[in-house]
Amino acid sequence: MGLYRDQGVVLRTIRLGESDRIVTLVTQAHGKVRAVAKGVRKTKSRFGGRLEPTSHVSLLLYEGRELDIVTQAEALDHFKAIREDLDRLARATTMLEAVDQVAQERQPGARLYQMLVGGLRALAARNAPLLVPAFFLKLLALEGFQPVLDGCAGCGAPEPLVAFDLTVGGALCPACARGPRVSPEAVDLMQRILDGGLAGALNEPVTPATAEVATLATRAMEHHLERRLRSVTVLD
């Protein structure tokens, strides 16, 4: 295929040799791509600050066997508001880490890319505490693990739902209850996030249910990835 064009978000970078970096991106048309950016660590590099994590870039890449090579990079958005605020940066990193775990190399998945760009844009516009949990829930849904919230995931019984366990698949009635307890407000909030009411949910004031959803969503994400998300706790 040789040279190809794509747009992507930089997920992480690893130092390579004297002055290069391996950049991991999630792209619109080629899924997760790992590419070498030569000389990025030099002060006179023509890539400059464009290939830092969270950067949204348009790229010209040369396809290699293992790793591709970045030949040109143009910034689409570098989310200044995120980069200059430690809290937002921590939240953005958590999203990047989850996407990095979920994305498959060279498996096209435009939806994942769009979700991440949307998530970063929303975070740059407003530092809402519900944003990352909502992103996790949407990501789980995209992966085919949308939690069951409109009835008991164990027996199908309608409300009341009192617990939440992702090994069973969602919220549970008192008879099937296992795993962490959940309040009706939190179930309602999660349901609205997944049913397209995210914008409304983000605008609501923070309640105890927000923190509850945050914990549940992080735990569900970690359960799905079968590993801890390292960036969740680092800056707390």
């Binding site: 002060t43 006179k44 023509r46 890539f47 400059g48 600050g49 464009r50 910034a75 570098h78 200044k80």
Partner: peptide, 16 residues
């Protein structure tokens, strides 16, 4: 900007 560099190659973030 690095001394001795060209403006046209500067990335937006650095130039900003």
């Amino acid at each position: 900007l690095p001394v001795g560099g060209d403006l046209e190659y500067a990335d937006e973030l650095t130039l900003g």
